[in-house]
Amino acid sequence: MTDLSLDGISLLLVWTAIATYVLAFAAYTIDLAQRSAVSTSAPARTLVAAGGNRGDSPEPAPPASAGSDAHSPRRVWARIGTSLTVLAFLFHLGGTLGRGIAAERVPWANMYEFALTGTLLIVAVYLVVLRLYDLRFLGAFLLGMIVLLLGGATLGFYVEVAPLMDPLKSIWLVIHVFVASLATALFALACGVSVTQLMQGRRERLLAADSVMRKAKKSPRFLTTIPSAETLETLAYRFTIVGFMFWSFTLIAGAIWANDSWGRYWGFDVKEVWTFVIWVLYAGYIHARATRGWRGSRSAWLSIVGFAAVLFNFTIVNIYFPGLHSYSGLTS
């Protein structure tokens, strides 16, 4: 790192990205605070659907009636947050590409690189989704997570560029790991939405129980500026089913790879077990959403548990559980 190797430049870019993410996180947090400050003036908006509307397919918002613009202030800090996120994303992308070029292969072959690419994809998916849905209320949550994961990985998992071990020299490294990271990104987003949904749901219940809104005031007030719990649930569901497709593909691609590499497609290796557990948990989530009595908060909890398992699989299992998938790059 004394001379500016390509890997060194990459690392520098990654730290720049982390610093910029911190700024973006701060901006989004200010936005949430502001939402709380102004929100009391326009509480009605999100409550429309809270009553009878029990469907699972709220339709795309109508071309905004003139009134709703008046309700939503310009959200300067949210905009700053998004701009900073884009900027940080570019640094992050540069750092990741630099790492790949320095290593002369895909930049996802050890823990540090998994984290690098995985978090990059979370931000990428967030930015793409932002074009479809206004999810900026999630910015603080997501970027907080990104800073922890990426910062933690860079501090704790960084290893110098090393050549690939033989078992990793396969086209499946490119496909399997990339798709798994994409699924992780979608699950992360879904988890964020589910957390918000739980908060919103609690607030709606309090409101319904106490029309004077005394207790409801205890809920974070930015909630009044974001969609109803039900809309959030539908959103979380949409992210999850796309993530679930990718995860299923990851599972199958992993089995094909294992069959070439280890001579069996399935062997209940620890990593295989956890991939399976996660898959079953999300299958459970999808079922929960279709089961009477499980819609709403309970299925939201499953989404959160599912993502917790994803994180556990990525961190604890990779580091502490011995198995065939010992590619963290940390042991040697």
Binding site: P58, A61, P63, L132, Y133, D134
Partner: peptide, 13 residues
Amino acid sequence: DTDHSHDSTERTP
């Protein structure tokens, strides 16, 4: 001519 009772986070163009 429209029925727009559903709120959502969908972005409006």
